[in-house]
Amino acid sequence: MTLVRQTLYMTVRHLRELSRQPWFVGVTLVQPVIWLLLFGALFKRIVDIPGFHGHSYIAFLAPGVVVMTAMFNSAWSGMALIEDLNRGVTARFLVSPVARQALIAGRLVKEAVVVVIQSLIIVVLALIVGASFPGGPGGVAALFAVSALLGATFGGLSNGFALIMRQEEALIGAVQFIVLPLTFLSSTFLQPNLMPSWIRHVADFNPVNWAVVAGRAATSASPDWGLVASRAGFLALLLALCLAFATRAFQSYQRSV
């Protein structure tokens, strides 16, 4: 109970920060919008490839872009933590009785909220440019949920790295090293049956792909809810691991001060 309350206090702090610079959400949307419109236009003819199911590439792409955006933006979550480390804010919390989990969880809940806001914007945009989500609002909500899970997972990873590396440059390197390969080793842009088989196998272990598969299934005309639930379950498990990792990483930070 205390943990929930403390997490809430921290979430309020981070969301308030965000509300004072709401343009930030917009700025972080520039890139995914470009992906959506540019890739949507560029690969429009992919639907003609034999073996591609469906007849609109943008409809196929939209859930992928939602998931990708969730990961891209949450992966930077640790940058704000490094700023807190440098400003002595984290040290102040660490000499208070607040739970370490709350210090991480508060950030992750904030990331999840941002993911939902951004996902909503992307979905509306996708609808405008001609995508459709046959699964209806329930499917879209499930897409948001798996995206939020993925965002929180990468947020946790990023915060853990931030506490261990403690330097912006190092974190930027790590994030860039991870984020793009994970995107391309997934079915974000292409259906699995059209991918080289090794990528298909790698993708099975890729959390980004879990979210894409689940999100795409949930928004399809006849959702395979078993598939959605299993991938969401994997993500939840991984989120728990990342949260534990980041919480433990405080020890690494405290050894360094």
Binding site: R20, V89, R92, P97
Partner: peptide
Amino acid sequence: RRAAGVVAQGSGVDVQ
């Protein structure tokens, strides 16, 4: 931690 109050050498204020 409950018994102590701490003012660290650098400020710990959240400037935002």
